[in-house]
Simulated assay, not measured.
Amino acid sequence: MATSEEIEKYCRNCVSRDFVNGKGLVCKRTGELPTFEEECDSFEQDKELERLAPPKPEDFPVSMTEEEMLAEENLPKGILCAVVACIVGAVAWGLISVFTGRQIGFMPIAIGFMVGFAMRQGKGIRPIFGIIGAALSLVSCILGDFLSIIGYISQDYEMGYFQVLAGVD
């Protein structure tokens, strides 16, 4: 014989369930508390409830072991992607700063996010990936600030950008 908790758990998945104050979970068909022993003859699975249910652990792929993750690491690929993001971020910082005439405060955050995301392409789990990503983010911020200063100078002195860049010692 099923306990009242087991019966309630069973009935929660039925389309004929209802809740009545003072009684609790009842059957819509009879208007009474469930009285079956093991299974209800009129049970009908609630598909909407099943669709809204959170995913089960078996719905996710099996996680990888640390050895498998280490085998998939690719530091050169991560560094290459992060260097490209570093350069793109620095150029974007310079262009945005020169065209708007302001240093926007969220640019370092955006560059850090972009370089970090690019570094993840190397699928690294060791700390060196984070250290290199942070260093490249810093380099990108410094380079972006430098490029924006060159842009300001070229505007102020009405010189070409590359002419000013070539004159930097």
Results as ranks from 00 to 15, higher is better:
residue 2 A to N: 09
residue 3 T to R: 10
residue 5 E to V: 09
residue 6 E to T: 07
residue 7 I to C: 06
residue 7 I to A: 14
residue 11 C to K: 05
residue 12 R to L: 15
residue 17 R to K: 13
residue 20 V to L: 00
residue 20 V to D: 04
residue 28 K to T: 09
residue 31 G to S: 07
residue 32 E to H: 06
residue 32 E to C: 03
residue 33 L to R: 10
residue 35 T to Q: 14
residue 40 C to A: 03
residue 43 F to Y: 15
residue 43 F to P: 08
residue 43 F to G: 06
residue 45 Q to W: 14
residue 46 D to V: 07
residue 46 D to H: 13
residue 49 L to Q: 13
residue 51 R to M: 05
residue 53 A to H: 10
residue 57 P to T: 10
residue 59 D to C: 12
residue 60 F to G: 09
residue 65 T to F: 10
residue 70 L to M: 11
residue 72 E to D: 12
residue 72 E to P: 01
residue 73 E to I: 00
residue 76 P to A: 04
residue 77 K to M: 06
residue 77 K to C: 01
residue 79 I to H: 09
residue 80 L to N: 14
residue 81 C to A: 14
residue 83 V to K: 01
residue 92 A to L: 12
residue 93 W to L: 05
residue 97 S to C: 07
residue 100 T to H: 00
residue 101 G to Q: 05
residue 106 F to H: 12
residue 107 M to I: 14
residue 111 I to A: 03
residue 111 I to G: 04
residue 114 M to V: 15
residue 115 V to G: 05
residue 115 V to W: 07
residue 120 R to Y: 02
residue 122 G to A: 00
residue 125 I to M: 09
residue 126 R to N: 13
residue 129 F to E: 04
residue 140 S to K: 01
residue 143 L to P: 13
residue 145 D to M: 09
residue 147 L to H: 04
residue 149 I to D: 15
residue 150 I to R: 05
residue 151 G to D: 04
residue 154 S to A: 13
residue 155 Q to I: 12
residue 156 D to E: 14
residue 160 G to Y: 10
residue 163 Q to L: 00
residue 164 V to E: 02
residue 165 L to R: 00
residue 166 A to G: 01
residue 167 G to V: 01
residue 167 G to N: 14
